[in-house]
């Protein structure tokens, strides 16, 4: 039997009102909605500190340097700074990997973009037998719900 949720929705509305009211009263630093188009950063993955100070009172730009392993390790900075990612990337870019209901793996959908270190490139069907044994948490992060695990249950039941 479904649990009653009316009180939860009431609390949600209350929080919403408080959030909106407080936001109107607050002035704090926000990164621009879009990175300036005339900045000349080109198409290459950017090293932010080439132009920005590494860090100041308001923002740490160094954490967004797209170094060699940035694609592997961006989780910690992205979960707190979605608006900084959105300066250059539309949500659909993230959804090449992070989405529920994808069929083509990112390395196949963008096969000619060999400069991107997309996950599962090549014969990952074989390699996942080992990677999954060694660290299954990395599989679970994307395939954890029933819809996203559709590609798993075909073999794993």
């Amino acid at each position: 039997m479904p649990k009653p949720i009316k009180i939860q929705y009431f609390l949600f509305l209350l929080l919403t009102s408080v959030l909106a009211a407080c936001a109107v009263q607050t002035q704090s630093y926000r990164v621009p909605a879009q990175h300036p188009e005339d900045s000349g950063i080109g198409k290459r993955p950017p090293i932010c500190v080439d132009c920005h100070e590494a860090s100041d009172d308001q923002f740490n730009w160094q954490q967004f340097n797209h170094t060699t392993y940035f694609a592997d390790n961006h989780r910690q900075v992205a979960l707190r700074n979605e608006q900084a990612c959105a300066m250059c990337h539309q949500t659909s870019f993230c959804n090449d990997c992070h989405a529920t209901g994808l069929e083509l793996k990112p390395s196949l959908k963008n096969q000619t973009e060999t400069y991107r270190r997309t996950p599962h490139r090549g014969d990952y069907l074989s390699r996942h037998r080992i990677d999954g044994r060694v660290d299954p948490s990395s599989c679970f992060r994307c395939h954890r719900n029933p819809k996203a695990s559709g590609s798993c249950v075909r073999c794993h039941g």
Binding site: T16, V18, L19, A20, C22, A23, T26, S28
Partner: peptide, 8 residues
């Protein structure tokens, strides 16, 4: 989804 700043 709602997101905002409550204070400084």
């Amino acid at each position: 989804w709602l997101k905002g700043t409550l204070s400084e």
